[in-house]
Write a protein that binds this DNA or RNA. Structure first.
Lengths: 207, 207
DNA sequence: TGTACATCAGTGAACGCGCGTTCACTGATGTAC
DNA sequence: TGTACATCAGTGAACGCGCGTTCACTGATGTAC
């Protein structure tokens, strides 16, 4: 049985490499990440990596895939927790988005900033679509609350909210340009989505 | 006089290097950009770069600085063109943001994705703050339209719109994950900001 | 107008480095009998 | 329980490469007299 043995055989090198990669990507960006350093951090020769991955890109793709897996789970969980209120579900997925980005920065970067395409392999595409699907489902059930003649396409609404969430993460959650966030990112996203939902007519205009 | 002479002396190497860098950054991302290749594309030895820049990072910083310069000008121009309507001004700056990102992708990437800090040198910090200041001014004059008790902080509003704009650029204007944008980025930003402004009570809730 | 000379912007060779990847190998593990 | 052997997961040396940066140099330009 594989496990805690340490010797010539690592026991769980594949996952150890993914985790080393995630730590490095978080610390130095996708640019700074190198296969050799990930191997070293896992206590192994660079050549050993090739027993488990086709190469550098493949390792990043696996990190991203695991990220999408966590991400999709979190989104689904948030969605269900908000039910039966479609508004609560929608807002919860928004919060979950930001929480994911903060808690799993290495995964987030692998997914959205490493430049790897979600179509690079079927597993990755599948789980990514599961994640995005949850975002859209949340938007869809929310739109059902609106009278048909005031109902924008759900995909558009989910794109708006996704864009604002991603923008908050990139600009204010990590310190991209001047590292001076005027407000806590959580508040920024919360208020931003709040105003947006009011604009849709889903929150009463007073208060 | 410097100019069109080509021989041992380039004549305008500094700017030629910046432009080569911008083209490379646009084509390959900040990762793929190398000083040596920029030099080659300018028809010059890598060592020649050091007559004009302290090194690789400095070259990127200059590309970003020029980007902020163009960006700030465009924003100011858009703002003034929208006057005296504060709403028109605000919307125009939003459109100008996206237009800039599309028209000057190399600059945009240098500014927001290359990882260089706007505080790396005073010139850069100054022009960046000029650009951000215009965004805030647009939000401020817009907020003056609202009754005081319904007036969110201008900096927050400008952060919201900036986040959404940046998110649209990253996710839907370039093909980050699956390269499938459900809507044209211009429309996405236009409608998104429209809904947001309605939420602020700045556009009448019907229509 | 001509000459001497300082200044400047480029060359080209060299450096040390770490990268991703390959290869033949070897040590450890698991299984068949 | 013991032995032979196949399988597997690692090693370590080597590769070619392009990178950023340095250095002493040299060719071109501009200026003083």
């Amino acid at each position: 049985m594989a496990g805690k043995k340490r010797g010539y055989h690592h026991g769980n090198l594949r996952q150890a490499l993914v985790e080393a990669a995630l730590a490095l990507i978080e610390a130095k960006g996708p640019t700074g990440f190198t296969l050799s350093e990930a191997a070293k951090q896992a206590g192994v020769t660079p050549a050993a990596v090739y027993r488990h991955f086709a190469g550098r890109e493949d390792l990043i793709a696996e990190a991203a895939r695991q990220g999408y897996e966590i991400f999709a789970d979190l989104m689904e969980h948030a969605y269900e927790k908000g039910q039966p209120s479609s508004l609560a579900s929608f807002e919860a997925t928004g919060r979950a988005y930001l929480a994911f980005a903060r808690k799993f920065p290495g995964h987030y970067i692998s997914m959205f900033e490493s430049g790897i395409s979600i179509n690079r392999n079927p597993d990755l595409a599948h789980v990514a679509n599961r994640a995005f699907g949850t975002l859209e489902k949340a938007a869809e059930t929310l739109m059902a609350e609106l009278p048909e003649d005031r109902r924008p396409p759900a995909r558009m609404v989910s794109a708006h909210v996704w864009a604002m969430s991603h923008g908050v993460v990139e600009l204010f959650s990590r310190g991209s340009p001047g590292t001076k966030s005027p407000f806590p990112p959580e508040d920024l996203l919360e208020t931003g989505i709040g105003i947006y939902l009011r604009g849709l007519g889903l929150i009463r205009p007073d208060t």
